[in-house]
Nucleic acid binder design. Structure first.
Lengths: 254, 254
DNA sequence: GCTTGACCTTTACGCAACGTGAAGGTGTAG
DNA sequence: CTACACCTTCACGTTGCGTAAAGGTCAAGC
């Protein structure tokens, strides 16, 4: 029952490179080496390769497999749990991806003025992605994931007019904010109008408005580089100003 | 509205390496290069980067993104459909993986004699994986996926004794087959006994026995390298002999 | 004007798990 | 004896950047 690389490989359904690579990284050494330098594997190596294949099938990295197989005291169970966590996260991400993709395809199939529509779609998808990336963690923690999913779903199912309204609203927020910034007073009329527009904008995403959450978001804004980079690109300090205005608007300025 | 790499990068929420890399592969060139060699990006480049991020978010490779963005006649819709197909396959694979992993974890949590039990689990999982890999496509096509899933579920839920019985049966098949092979007659008594044992073995996996399916499987055997490699490892021609015996057994030898 | 520190540049190795030649030795069947 | 199939060891290619290393540039403060 001795095997060369090729025989071992075809037995396991992998390429001959695989046992050689495993030898190279010290994961699976041949039982012995023939006088001509051929790798010779025995039944013990077949067993070990099967073990390796098993863990590999579970998506465990070769380094980790080495740990598992080599140290008998290694907490394989804990490793598997951690691995499961990673896989679940990966699947969730994949699901999100597929959902986005399907929406995109559906929309693209519907319309014939592709170029314009595609740009539009791009915008919506980007919004979803950014919304998820920016608020994902925090909103999830605060309201649970359902709210966020509803938010994304709403965004995806928006009509073109709604999306345009959102875009327009977004523009209005910035415009008003800039005008308010010129006054320098975050509690002034213009600033409060900007904060209110921002609330309206927010209501596109959140199922129900919540003052505390709005204020919390405002505080988050000034700490999030992505946000400050976006708002400060024209006028530095604009993000901080918006934050102050919102805190005043929600009455949480302490 | 001009940006250096860092500014552009933080605007998009990526690292500064990313725009440089995109420049390197010709995916996103800066609008111009300053006298000092700095990359300077304008709003057009920001837009393009957003497009790139959009497709990247969908998991499309950078090369493909380049195709999409550069050729106006490129069938983006078709590309997206193909991409969806790949993602769905990937998710199915991931689901299978997670299911296996969870079974393994559950079993490991239950028992305390880990080392033995783990090896046993490894065996079972391997059987599932092999069963899936070997018969997956064909069985799925013939009986629908439900049967296969039931088969896998059965295998996973087998008691240790059942699994040992299966192992023993598997050994018996090979032993009888070898003895029959010595007689040279695939229609002889021993060969028919081997075929019957093989039927019993098969009944561990298939919810109901079907002569036609058994014969079909036999024909498949000699075409499948993984199978022939397994059976021919001791005696070349054994796989073909088993096939002949089964065809005779099922009366489908035409 | 000079230093400091935060930017920028190119070059190039590293990652995971092999795929894929290239160049050459070995084993066996006809 | 000669194919021909198998084996060996380099060693570079893949993806999408991360991460130094070694050095130039820019705005600010002294």
């Amino acid at each position: 029952m001795e095997y060369t690389v090729q025989r071992l490989a075809s037995l396991a359904g992998v390429s001959a490179r695989t046992p050689r690579y495993y030898d190279e990284i010290g994961l699976l050494k041949p039982a012995r080496v023939s006088s001509a330098g051929y790798r010779i594997y025995g039944t013990a190596e077949v067993d070990r390769l099967q073990q390796i294949m098993f863990y590999r099938e579970l998506g465990v990295g070769l380094g980790e497999i080495k740990q598992i197989l080599e140290s008998p005291g290694f907490d394989a169970l804990q490793a598997l749990r951690e691995h499961r966590r990673q896989l679940l996260a990966k699947r969730e991400q994949l699901d999100q991806l597929i959902a986005n993709l399907e929406k995109t395809i559906a929309q693209a199939e519907g319309g014939r003025t592709m170029s314009d529509r595609e740009k539009f779609e791009g915008f919506k998808q980007k919004m979803i992605a950014e919304n998820e990336a920016r608020y994902g963690e925090e909103v999830r923690a605060k309201f649970g994931r359902e709210a966020l999913e509803r938010s994304n779903k709403m965004l995806a199912n928006m009509t073109e007019e709604q999306a345009k309204a959102l875009q327009e609203l977004s523009r209005e927020v910035i415009e008003t904010l800039k005008a308010a910034y010129a006054t320098g007073d975050p509690k002034g009329e213009l600033a409060q109008k900007a904060a209110d527009l921002h609330r309206q904008w927010l209501c596109f995403f959140w199922p129900q408005y919540d003052k505390e959450a709005h204020a919390g978001l405002a505080r988050m804004y000034v700490q999030d580089e992505r946000f400050t980079a976006y708002y400060d690109q024209d006028q530095p300090g604009l993000a901080q100003f918006l934050c102050d205005a919102i805190l005043a608007y929600t009455g949480q300025e302490n």
